[in-house]
Design a protein around this nucleic acid. Structure first.
Length: 451
RNA sequence: UCCAGCGUAGCUCAGUGGUAGAGCGGGCGACUGUUAAUCGCCUGGUCGUAGGUUCGAAUCCUACCGCUGGAGCCA
């Protein structure tokens, strides 16, 4: 439109705009919001990396540029040219003195963009997840998720772990308990979507030493809570010759590394997510070592809490902890707490018994602070052929299906340990979110598979 | 599967037996520093569905449907 605009204005992103202070740049993105005050317009642009406010005084731009922006509808796509200026009044520190704008597609006003800056309910937003993710808070969460995933892989890659992803289609249940998604598999009978790659990475660990897997897992449980998805991502390391102590050290260093990376890259995003307040402070305390609590110590803590009226139900010794129990325990600490050596009876068949007390399993749950629940579950695995076979039979599992798994104890068995971390719960905790449905681009929950 | 709560305008909600409401959104207008801008006017509804009680039902009762999050189970 305006012929004065230099065609060569460099293209940049809003996140990097500070490097171009005083220069005229181009941004490609969308109109996020528009305020007007007479002959002065305040359009807010977004480009996926952040948002920036533009300033358009009527006297300073070509009339058609002013008119185009004044009439522009929210979420219309555009390329904007303008000069970057530092401004104390701007939340991000920079503003754009708009010189020109070129609209790629104009949203018609009879069908306006449905997500406004006001409040909406979860059903309305999830039905429009493909649009909701354009809002600054949702975009920020997805950026943090990406960093968490990258940091998690980087942690293992730089420690010489080999990534070995297990199959997603499996012939039988790994643990025999969870509800599985079932499907027909040609003439081979039924197949199931994996609920954990653990048994498979035990095999790859005995081949390659230190391994991890990273991919989606599926649980058909009818859980409708803020902590549950039917499809979620899990990263699972498995280490030959590692015992429970090694595993707990690995877990606390792993989580510390992830938090460090998020703090390095996402101060602004964390502020956007928590709505202004600088909640990054609570993450600065997250550093190894983490507090450790045996099952017995945790039980005693709950016992005392009940007698003081701090929790509603008494914890029965020998039972697993319920969600309110986990919340209480985690609230006693300012960093993740590692609860180890649960009663073997409430844990999976493949967990190694504690030599000090055969009724306990060499396992650990890492509970995130603030009631976000179990983000990591792991254990030392049974390495004796005879014991593992007996456990399979005791749990009523079909021995034929586990022959390959028993082979791992038949040929050069060693002590080995591993854990799994649910990415979504980790993101929810680090970002301080109400619900895991916001931690993944398209959440799959009990009664939603659209969009 | 069980328990609880909620379904009223495009959105968020108020209205609890007597003529259907507000804010936001959308439209028109005013405003040169707004931050979910503000101000004026306009627009907008088979009160989830079906049945019942009543002179009269958004409101009370029953069933069903949908949503929400809590238990169990789990990451």
């Amino acid at each position: 439109m305006s012929t004065e605009t230099p065609v060569a204005a460099p293209l940049t992103s809003i996140a990097n705009i500070g490097q171009h202070e005083g220069q005229t740049v181009r941004l490609r993105g969308w109109l996020y919001n528009l305020r007007a005050s007479g002959k002065l317009l305040f359009p807010i642009f977004r480009d996926g990396s952040g948002t920036i406010q533009g300033i358009v005084p009527k006297a300073a731009v070509a009339p058609e540029v002013f008119d185009t922006l004044k009439e522009l509808t929210l979420e219309s796509s555009l390329t904007v040219t303008g000069k970057v200026r530092a401004d104390q009044r701007a939340p991000s520190g920079y503003e754009l003195d708009v010189e020109n704008v070129e609209v790629t597609q104009r949203v018609p006003e009879d069908q306006p963009f449905p997500i406004t800056l006001k409040e909406h309910g979860p059903d309305f937003l999830m039905e429009r997840r493909h649009l909701w993710m354009r809002t600054p808070r949702q975009s920020a969460i997805l950026r943090v998720r990406a960093t968490i995933m990258r940091a998690a892989q980087e942690f293992f890659d730089t420690r010489d772990f080999i990534r070995t992803d297990p199959p997603i289609l499996t012939p039988a249940a790994c643990e025999g308990t969870s509800e599985l998604f079932e499907m027909k598999y040609f003439d081979e009978g039924n197949a199931y979507l994996t609920q954990s790659g653990q048994l498979y990475i035990e095999a790859t660990a005995l081949a390659l030493g230190k391994v991890y897997s990273f991919g989606p897992t599926f649980r058909a449980e009818k859980s409708k809570t803020r902590r549950h998805l039917t499809e979620f991502w899990m990263i699972e390391p498995e280490v030959a010759y590692a015992d429970l102590g090694d595993l707990m050290e690995l877990a606390e260093q792993f989580l510390s590394h992830i938090v460090t990376r998020v703090l390095e890259k996402h101060r602004t995003d964390l502020k956007t997510i928590t709505g202004g307040g600088d909640k990054a402070v609570r993450l600065e305390k997250i550093a190894a070592p983490f507090p450790r609590l045996s099952y017995d110590e945790a039980h005693a803590m709950l016992d005392q809490a009940f007698s003081k009226g701090l929790i509603e139900k008494p914890h029965e010794y020998g039972d697993d902890f319920g969600a309110p129990d986990e919340t209480y325990i985690s609230n006693q600490f300012d960093r993740p707490v590692m609860v180890h050596r649960y009663p073997a009876a409430v844990k999976a068949f493949y967990m190694q018994p504690d030599p000090q007390d055969q009724t306990k399993a060499l396992c650990v749950d890492v509970l995130a602070p603030e009631g976000y629940g179990e983000i990591i579950g792991g254990s030392q695995r049974v390495d004796s052929y005879d014991l593992l076979k007996q456990r399979i039979l005791d749990h009523g599992l079909p021995l034929e299906a586990f022959q390959w798994y028993l082979d791992l104890r038949r040929y050069g068995s060693v002590p080995h340990s591993g854990f799994g971390m649910g990415i979504e719960r980790c993101v929810a905790w680090i970002c301080g979110l109400e619900h895991v449905r916001e931690t993944i681009p398209f959440a799959r929950t009990l009664n939603r598979i659209y969009p």
